[in-house]
């Protein structure tokens, strides 16, 4: 059977999957078309703008977590 993935590769693959899961709802047309409404507002934001903001924050948080994990393990390269 093929080569086993290294710990570093697994972490990066994990983030890639997380990224796709987070970003797909506002990029893939079937979900995007369903979510693309102004109401109901979420806090001060129209729904679709709130989802953009949420996605952006989740991606940034994911990058922070990835960096912290890699940095702690010495896997930055």
């Amino acid at each position: 059977m093929g080569n086993k993935l290294s710990r570093k590769s697994k972490t990066r693959l994990g983030f890639a999957i997380y990224f796709v899961v987070v970003i797909v709802p506002i990029l893939a047309l079937p979900t995007l078309n369903r979510l693309n409404t102004a109401e109901p507002f979420v806090g001060p934001f129209p729904r679709i703008i709130f989802l953009m903001l949420l996605d952006y924050l989740l991606v940034c948080a994911g990058l922070f977590a990835l960096y912290e994990i890699e940095s702690r393990r010495g896997d930055l390269l």
């Binding site: 995007l32 409404t37 102004a38 109401e39 507002f41 806090g43 001060p44 934001f45 129209p46 679709i48």
Partner: peptide, 19 residues
């Protein structure tokens, strides 16, 4: 504020709040 701004846009130009 941000909330009042979006409410005003919703009242006058609701098409601006969707893609």
């Amino acid at each position: 504020g941000i909330g009042p701004m979006f409410q005003q846009v919703l009242a006058q130009r609701p098409e601006m709040l969707v893609i």
